[in-house]
Simulated assay, not measured.
Amino acid sequence: MRALPMILAAAAFALPPASVAWADPGHHGHDHGPEAAYGRPGDPARGGRVIQVTMGETETGMAFAPSRIEVRQGEQVQFVLRNGGELEHELVIGTVEANREHAEAMAAHPDMEHEDLNAKRLRPRTSGVLRWQFSQAGTFEYACLIPGHREAGMVGTLVVK
């Protein structure tokens, strides 16, 4: 039975970490489920439609370009993100309610560190990819939840048809 501990150890590495946080409108704080109302993480092996999103500061605040994105229900998207700004920014996919709750938690705990599967945070002048599959139709949003950024205009509309 010496193989059993090795199997259990391998299984532990295959499971997602318990610290992975998911924002969900039905829960206060974070939910650890595999799928939310706005979808689930995309499969890196599947690719998907590429949508480029730039984030950064503007003369009047902060913004995403584009500020509105439409996708099809069931579609997997590869968001190619570029932080063209001088500050750190992030893109968090969620419902309006979940993102507001998450933003409030971040404002109350500004040193909070987290790695949400529905988000990507970028340092200034860097880029990254966030893969997401949109499983349910509806209107959702993407926002930067770093304290003050959403209020400065870093919020976009995401329509799943």
Rank of each mutant, 00 (worst) to 15 (best):
M106E: 09
A108R: 14
A108W: 03
H109M: 02
H109L: 13
H109Q: 13
H109V: 08
P110C: 15
P110E: 07
P110K: 09
P110M: 14
P110W: 10
D111Y: 13
D111Q: 12
M112C: 01
M112V: 03
E113T: 14
E113K: 14
E113D: 04
H114W: 10
E115V: 02
E115P: 11
E115A: 06
L117G: 06
L117M: 12
N118I: 02
N118P: 01
N118G: 00
N118E: 09
K120S: 09
K120H: 04
K120D: 00
R121K: 14
L122A: 09
L122P: 12
R123C: 01
R123G: 08
R123E: 13
R123M: 12
R125H: 12
R125S: 11
T126D: 03
T126V: 05
T126M: 05
T126L: 11
S127T: 09
G128M: 04
G128L: 08
V129G: 03
L130S: 15
L130D: 05
R131A: 13
R131M: 15
W132G: 00
Q133A: 03
Q133V: 04
Q133L: 02
Q133G: 03
F134T: 15
F134A: 02
F134M: 04
F134L: 12
S135E: 00
S135H: 00
S135M: 14
S135A: 08
Q136H: 15
Q136E: 15
Q136N: 15
A137S: 10
A137L: 01
G138P: 01
T139A: 05
T139Q: 11
F140T: 07
F140P: 04
